[in-house]
Computed example of a mutant assay.
Amino acid sequence: MLHLPTVIGLSFILNLLIGLFFLSVHNYKKQSAFLIFGLACIAFSFAELLACLKLILNFPFITSYLANIFIILSPFLIILGLHKYKYSKPLNLRPIYYLLLFTAVVLLSVYPYSAAQMVTSFIIAGLYLFSAYIISTMNFVATLQKKALITCFLIHSLLMFVQTVLLALPILSLSDTTYLEPLELILSSHLILATCSALLLPYLLASNTEHTLASIANTDVLSQLFNRRGFFMKGKNALSLSLYQNKNISLILLDIDFFKRVNDTYGHEAGDQAIKWIAQHIKSQFLNEEISARIGGEEFAILLPNCSLSDARNNAEELRESISCYPFYYEGHDINLSVSAGVSSTLNGEQTIKELLANADKRLYLAKETGRDKVVTYDEKSLLLQA
C-alpha cells in the first residue's frame, strides 16, 4: 500500500511548483492559457491543503465543501486552458460559470454527507474524460507524451467513476459496508495521476513552442517554402537516412527570368505575388519526398532524393513549362513569366549539398547566358549555343 501522507505531500509540492512555473511563463509570454494552467495546478494544491486541514480542524465547510470546489475547479481550468491554447480566441465563459455555480449549489446542500464526495467524484470523472477528448483533437509534436497524457486522463476518469460507484454502494444497499482500502488506493492513484498530468502538460506545450520557433527559423515567410538554412538542414537530415544510401540524388536550381523588370514595371508587391505564384507551382508538383526552398531573392532550389539526372531534368522541364504556358495575373495585368534551371546529380555521399548546388548554379548560369527559359543538365556551352 502506498504511504498516503507521502503521496499527498509530494503531490502538493509538485503541483504548486508546476503552477508557479506556468505563472512565470505567462508573465513572460503574456499568453492567457499558461495563466489558466498555473491556476489549475495551484487550485489542486489548495484543495489538498484544505482537505488535510480536517486533521486539525472540525469545520466541514472548509475541509469538505471548499476542498471539493477547488478539486473540481482544477480540471475545469485545464479544459478552459486547453481551449484557449487551441483556439486563441475569446471563449463564451457563461456556460462554464453556470455549471460551476450549479455544482457549488448542489455541493452546498450535501457537503456534510458522504454524498458530497460521490457527486465530486462523478463530476471530476466527466471533466477528465472531456479533457482527454480535447487533447486527442489537438496537434502536438511530442506524440508519445500526448498519448501518455490522454491515458492519464482516461485512467483518472475511470478511477473517479469507480470511486463514485464504491461510495454509492453503501447508500444503495442500505448496509454499513465500507470500502476503505480500495478508496484509499484510488485516492493515492488520483493524486499521482493528477501530478503526472501536470508534469506532462508543460512538456507538450514546450515541444510545440520549440517546433513552432524552429519552423519560423527555417521557413521563408513569403513563399512558405524552406529558406536557405532550412533547406540545408532538412536536406542533410534526409540524405543521412539509410533509405537513400547508395542512391542517386539530384538538385534543381531555378531562377525567375527578368524578375527585375516585373518589380520595375508593376511594383515590388507584384514581384512578391510572382514569387508566391512560382512557389505554388513548385508545391503542387513536388509533394512527396522532395525538399523545396527559396534560397535567394528569386532563386529556388529543389532537392530530389533517389532521383536520377534524367528524371530530375524531366521534372524541371515540366515545372518550366507549367510556369511559361500560363500567364501570371496581377491587378488586371497578364504577366508572362519564365524560369531558367540548372540540374545536377550525384551518388549520395559523393558530393555535399553545397557541391550539388554549386554545379547546378553553373548550369543555371549557362541557361541564362544562352537564351533563358530552358533547363540545362550539362556544362558544354558550345552544345547549348548550337541547340
Rank of each mutant, 00 (worst) to 15 (best):
S284N: 15
G296Y: 00
D264T: 04
H281P: 10
D255R: 01
R294Q: 08
I295W: 09
I295K: 01
H281N: 13
G271E: 01
H281G: 15
T265Q: 14
A293W: 00
E289W: 10
I295Q: 04
K283M: 13
S292I: 06
I282F: 04
Q280K: 13
A279L: 11
I278N: 01
I291G: 04
D257C: 07
T265C: 09
I295Y: 02
E289Y: 13
A279K: 00
F259I: 11
A279F: 07
K260E: 05
R294F: 01
R261V: 14
Q273V: 06
Y266R: 09
E290W: 04
E269I: 14
W277T: 09
I275H: 00
T265I: 13
E289S: 15
I282N: 07
Q273K: 12
N288V: 12
D272K: 05
S292M: 06
I275W: 04
E290N: 07
S284I: 11
F286H: 12
K260Y: 12
I256C: 01
Y266V: 13
F259V: 08
L287D: 02
K283P: 14
G296F: 04
F286A: 02
F286T: 08
A274P: 01
A293M: 10
W277D: 00
I282M: 07
Q280D: 11
F258Q: 15
K283E: 07
N288Y: 10
T265L: 14
W277C: 01
Q273I: 12
I282H: 08
Q280Y: 13
N263C: 03
D264C: 12
D264Q: 05
K260L: 10
H281D: 08
D257W: 03
Q280T: 12
T265V: 13
F258L: 15
K283G: 12
D255P: 03
I291F: 05
I295V: 13
W277A: 00
D264W: 11
Q280C: 12
A279R: 00
D257T: 13
E289N: 15
V262A: 02
F286R: 05
R294C: 09
D257L: 02
N288H: 15
A274F: 09
I256E: 05
G267Y: 09
I275E: 06
K276W: 06
A270S: 05
L287H: 05
D264H: 09
R294Y: 11
H268Y: 07
N288C: 12
I278F: 06
I295C: 04
A279V: 00
E269K: 08
E269W: 11
I282E: 07
D255Q: 03
G296H: 00
A270H: 00
I278R: 01
D264N: 11
I275N: 00
H281V: 13
F258P: 12
K260V: 06
E289A: 14
Y266W: 14
K260C: 07
A274Y: 08
N288A: 14
A274W: 03
T265M: 10
A270E: 02
I278D: 07
Q285C: 09
N263Y: 13
Q280P: 09
A293N: 03
F286M: 06
E290G: 11
F259E: 07
N288D: 12
A274Q: 03
V262S: 00
